[in-house]
Amino acid sequence: MIDAHIHLDWYKPEDQAIILRDLEKRSIDGVIAVSSDLMSCNNVWELHQACPRIFPAFGWHPEQKMPSEAELDRIVQLIREHHDSLAAIGEVGLPYYMKREDYTLDSKPYLNILERFIKLAKEYHLPIVLHAIYEDAETACDLLEKHQVTKAHFHWFKGLDQTVKRMISNGYMISVTPDCVYEREIQLLIDKYPLDLIMVETDGPWQFEGPFSGEMTHPKMIEQSVRKIAELKCLSYKKVCDTVTQNTRDFYLLKDNY
Score class of each variant (00 low, 15 high):
I19W: 02
I19A: 13
L20C: 06
L20V: 10
D22H: 10
L23W: 04
K25D: 11
K25I: 08
K25E: 12
R26W: 08
S27W: 03
I28M: 09
G30R: 03
V31I: 13
V31F: 02
I32Y: 00
I32H: 00
A33S: 10
S35G: 03
S36L: 07
D37N: 14
L38D: 00
L38A: 00
M39N: 11
M39K: 04
S40T: 03
C41D: 12
C41W: 12
V44Y: 07
W45H: 14
H48G: 02
Q49L: 15
C51R: 14
R53I: 07
R53Q: 09
R53P: 00
I54A: 01
P56M: 11
A57N: 00
F58W: 06
F58P: 10
G59C: 13
G59D: 12
G59S: 10
H61C: 05
H61M: 07
P62H: 00
P62T: 06
E63D: 15
K65C: 02
M66D: 01
P67C: 05
E69K: 10
E69D: 12
A70L: 09
V76M: 14
Q77R: 13
L78M: 05
L78R: 04
E81S: 15
H83M: 11
D84E: 11
S85W: 11
L86W: 00
L86E: 02
A87F: 08
A88H: 01
A88S: 05
A88D: 00
E91S: 09
E91H: 06
L94M: 07
P95N: 08
Y97L: 09
K99F: 13
R100Y: 11
